[in-house]
Simulated scan of single mutants.
Amino acid sequence: MQHKMRENPLAPEGVNRLLERAMVGRVSTNGSDGYPYTVVVHFVYREGAVYFHGLPKGEKLCNIARDPKVCFEVDELLGIRKEGVTVPCKVGSGYESAVLRGRASLVDDPGEKEDILRAITAKYAPELGEAPILPQAAAGTAVVKIQVESCTGKYHK
C-alpha cells in the first residue's frame, strides 16, 4: 500500500462526499490494443454506482462491450502548499481523490435511463432540471452504469 494511503485514507463518508460534489471524473477501459484508454466524463454517483453518459458509439463503449472491467477516478485539488518552502521538492499539494474499480454496463431500461439523465442534468445544469428529455435525445445517448466492486480514497491537507 502506498504511503499516502496508509497515512491519509479518505473515509467512506469522505469518498461519498467527493463523488457527490466532483464535477469531472475519469473512466479507464481496457483497449483492444492492450493499452488503457482514459476519458473525462460527467457523472453522478447513486446508491453505490457511478453513471455517466455519452455518444452511443465509440472506443469507450467498444472497450466496455469487450471487457466490462473499468477504473473510475475522481480528484479535487485543494491548493498548492509552498509557503515558506525554499526547495522545489518540498512543494506539496492538498487534495482528495478516490479510485473505484468495477464492471460497466449499458443502461437499457428507458425509465432508469431517463432518471439518470435527469440526475446528470440536475447536477450540471440545475436550471434545466424540469425540462423535458426528448425521446430522440435519450435514444441518441448512451448511459453507462459502473457497479463499484472496490474503492479507495486518500487525501493530503
Results as ranks from 00 to 15, higher is better:
27 V>Y: 01
113 K>I: 07
101 R>L: 14
15 V>R: 14
120 I>K: 04
110 P>N: 09
90 K>S: 15
69 K>T: 07
110 P>Q: 08
5 M>Y: 12
96 E>H: 14
14 G>M: 10
22 A>K: 01
110 P>T: 03
81 R>Y: 13
82 K>F: 13
64 I>G: 00
81 R>F: 05
113 K>D: 14
92 G>F: 06
3 H>Y: 11
88 P>N: 09
1 M>K: 06
6 R>M: 11
75 D>R: 04
103 R>V: 11
39 V>M: 06
25 G>F: 04
109 D>T: 04
79 G>V: 01
118 R>C: 06
46 R>T: 00
18 L>T: 12
28 S>V: 14
57 K>E: 12
91 V>H: 13
7 E>P: 02
77 L>A: 09
60 K>A: 08
132 P>S: 09
73 E>R: 00
99 V>L: 15
118 R>P: 07
84 G>M: 08
13 E>L: 07
122 A>L: 11
110 P>D: 11
114 E>I: 10
61 L>N: 03
55 L>H: 09
105 S>H: 05
52 F>P: 00
23 M>P: 01
95 Y>C: 12
42 H>P: 01
22 A>P: 01
71 C>G: 08
112 E>I: 00
54 G>C: 02
57 K>R: 15
48 G>K: 00
88 P>K: 08
80 I>M: 15
27 V>F: 07
106 L>P: 01
44 V>A: 12
79 G>M: 11
30 N>M: 08
25 G>C: 05
65 A>F: 06
93 S>T: 14
36 P>C: 03
